[in-house]
Amino acid sequence: MNSTDLMKQLPAQWSTFGPGFDWLFYFLYWMSVILFVGIIGTAVYFVVKYRRRPGVKAEPTGHNLVMELAWTVAPVVLLVMLFHWGFSGYISLTSPPPDALDIRVRARKWSWDFEYPNGGHSQNDVTVPLNRPVRFVMSSEDVIHSMFVPAFRVKRDAVPGMYSTLWFQATHTGDTRFYCAEYCGAADEPVTQADGSARETGHFSMGGLVHIVPQSAWAGYLESILRAPSHADGREFTPAEWGEQLYTQQNCNTCHSVNGTPMTGPTWQHLFGQQVPLADGTRVLADENFIRRSILEPNAQVVQGFGPIMPSYQGSLTDRQLDAIIAYIRTLR
């Protein structure tokens, strides 16, 4: 990165909002620079020119009503203009076209779930088509989060108990980052990952990539999320392989280890087929039904020693994905 890049005020603009936004931003920017240099330049000039000298007295302060009125009224004209531009920009930000593609977005500490029109889901990363209006219909399952895509110049809070919407039309293919912009805390302890390294999770880790794909690739993408993924040689993943991939994709790994270490949740190692002690003192056999229920209704049967804090994955996982995860857990016996 060279020094001119470092001084650039805005990130690349990849949505239809970009040009208008950037124009107004840089208008404000240069207007501010001119005003700042004007005012402070004048002040500095006065400080130097009228610095204290022996025998020179300050002139008494007079009145200049015209000047005072001028600098009270002149900004009003400018402000009205700015307000108008800002407001019309805001109106276009809040008015998605009727043919926009809806993606349902669910925010929770500290991940995002995207549900596509065909019922498929993706976690943390979202894929959208190029040159087509996309509307996010957002809600939150716990606290307030906020969807922020700097390259699109859009941001909107996801508030529990209501839906909020955000829309954009991407103008560039590629990957760009989105963030959570409303503070939502962090895990008390770092999570030990499978390779032994510690990973902190929280507000700051609650983001991902927006993949913008050409419309020709979009239909194929939609299909692929319902299917097990394929190896490079075209061979489809086995259920257990897919389950292993989902283990990280769906963030199971932030709470469940596969090496026997208890984390926020119980480990998956040697889980399948065991008698598991529950918080209410009973025991239950960890079979397919137990695991399925634990994923869909996590707080129905909480394992002894752990808190009822897991969010439900009801609706975020297809039946085939559930099968794949169960197949993966079976291999950890």
């Binding site: 208008g20 936004f21 404000l28 700015l82 307000f83 531009w85 800002g86």
Partner: peptide, 15 residues
Amino acid sequence: LFLGVLSIDIHLHDT
């Protein structure tokens, strides 16, 4: 001023 102008604030809010 940047933050008072609506469309600009949307981008700058909470940054």
